[in-house]
Structure formats: structure tokens, C-alpha cells
């Protein structure tokens, strides 16, 4: 565990707390893509299977995994049941099969071991890399976002961004490289670049998040 990894994880944790705060205080999930949130549930369930296989890493690791599974399921519940009328499926139109299908194919080709757990792990890494696309697509479509939603996205983007210096650190400190995680992580971070540009040049200057028409 190094400082980049810890900050990355805390940023991930913060993003979920920001999202929960947004939904609870505005009593609305307007502007949030249900499809992206559903993909995260799939990502966590397929990646954290090791929880049930007795593959113990640390209390920190187990607690975080349980939190990510639990909170992502809770968010789906809030969106689908509790605040259902505030979710507009008409603008959440990205085709998730374009993300799930290729991720599955990639996982079948590129994995560390040809076992169910390892294929699902690789699948979860590839799927996570692109899971934000329905959300970004929705943002692009509506052309604007509530400020709190942009803070959520910024924290989520920072999480994978911070994993990059973590991997560089690990390469020099213990000589390990996880090519699947690194390549997918670079793609994932890259998807946020346009968003971050607008976030830094507008939202952090006190302006509303608006895309040029």
C-alpha cells in the first residue's frame, strides 16, 4: 500500500459518498445514468468473488470490497425503487451490450489464467474501464450537469487516475506490473480527459458545468 493507492481508494470511496449525498439531499437521481450504476454492480460482483473463496488479503481489502458491493446495490435500489420517478430512461440510452460483449470477449482472450474466477476478474477490469460511458454519453446529450454530479465524476475519475502513479511506484518498489489492470486503467482514465477539462476550466472556477452547444 502506497500513498497513491490509498488516495485513489479514498477518492473512490468519496465519489460514492458524494453520489449518495446528492441522491439523498435532492431526493432525486436526475442526471445519473442508471446503466452506469448497474454496470458497477456487475463489476464489483464479478471482481470480488474472491471474498467468497477465502482468499484473504487484509481487513482493509475485505471492508472496502464489501462497501463497494453494498453501496452500489443500494444506489441501484435508490434509483430503481425509492426515487424511481426522478430517473428518465429516455436520456439514458447508451447500449450497454456494446460494453459488456466486447469486455467478455477480451476477458476470454486476455486473462492471467483460464479459470472462471480469473476470466471474471479480467472481465470486471475491462468492463470497469468503460462503465462510465453511459454516464458521459448522458452528460454529452443533456449538455449540462448539476455541480454535485460533476464532483462525483471528478472523484471517480481521480480514483483511477491515482492508480497510475501507484502502478509506477509498485514497479520500482517491488518490480511488479499488472498489464491487464494498467492498460485498462489508462483507457479508463483517458475517458475522463474531456470531462476533466471542463471541470477544471468551469466548475472549479465557480461556473456551471455546461458543454458548448
Amino acid at each position: 500500500m502506497n500513498v497513491f493507492r490509498l488516495l485513489g481508494d479514498l477518492s473512490h470511496l468519496a465519489s460514492i459518498l458524494i453520489l449518495l449525498h446528492k441522491i439523498q439531499t435532492t431526493r432525486s437521481c436526475r442526471g445519473i445514468s442508471f446503466k452506469t450504476q448497474a454496470l458497477y454492480v456487475v463489476v464489483f460482483l464479478t471482481r470480488y468473488l474472491d471474498l467468497f473463496l477465502g482468499d484473504w488479503v487484509s481487513l482493509y481489502n475485505t471492508a472496502m470490497k464489501l462497501f463497494f458491493i453494498g453501496s452500489s446495490c443500494y444506489i441501484l435500489y435508490l434509483m430503481k425503487l425509492r426515487f424511481r420517478p426522478t430517473h428518465d430512461p429516455a436520456i439514458d440510452t447508451f447500449r450497454v451490450e456494446y460494453l459488456v460483449g466486447p469486455s467478455l470477449i477480451l476477458a476470454l482472450i486476455f486473462n492471467y489464467k483460464y479459470t472462471l474466477v480469473e476470466i471474471l476478474w479480467a472481465f470486471s477490469i475491462y468492463l470497469e474501464a468503460v462503465a462510465i460511458m453511459p454516464q458521459l454519453f448522458m452528460l454529452q446529450r443533456t449538455g449540462e450537469a448539476e455541480t454535485i454530479t460533476t464532483h462525483y465524476l471528478a472523484a471517480l475519475g481521480a480514483y483511477r487516475g491515482l492508480y497510475i502513479p501507484n502502478w509506477i511506484y509498485r514497479y520500482f518498489s517491488d518490480g511488479t506490473v499488472d498489464p491487464i489492470a494498467v492498460i485498462a486503467g489508462l483507457v479508463q482514465t483517458g475517458l475522463y480527459l474531456d470531462f476533466f477539462y471542463v471541470y477544471f476550466t468551469r466548475v472549479l472556477q465557480g461556473q456551471k458545468f455546461e458543454l458548448p452547444a
Binding site: R5, D9, H12, R47, D50, L53, D55, V57, N61, M64, K65, F68, Y112, K113, T115, V117, E118, W121, Y163, D178, A181
Partner: peptide
């Protein structure tokens, strides 16, 4: 050699 690769990241 273990049957699974050890993934210690989240």
C-alpha cells in the same frame, strides 16, 4: 503455484 492470481488491488 496457486490456482488463482493474487489480486490485492480494488
Amino acid at each position: 503455484d496457486d490456482d488463482t492470481t493474487r489480486h490485492d488491488e480494488l
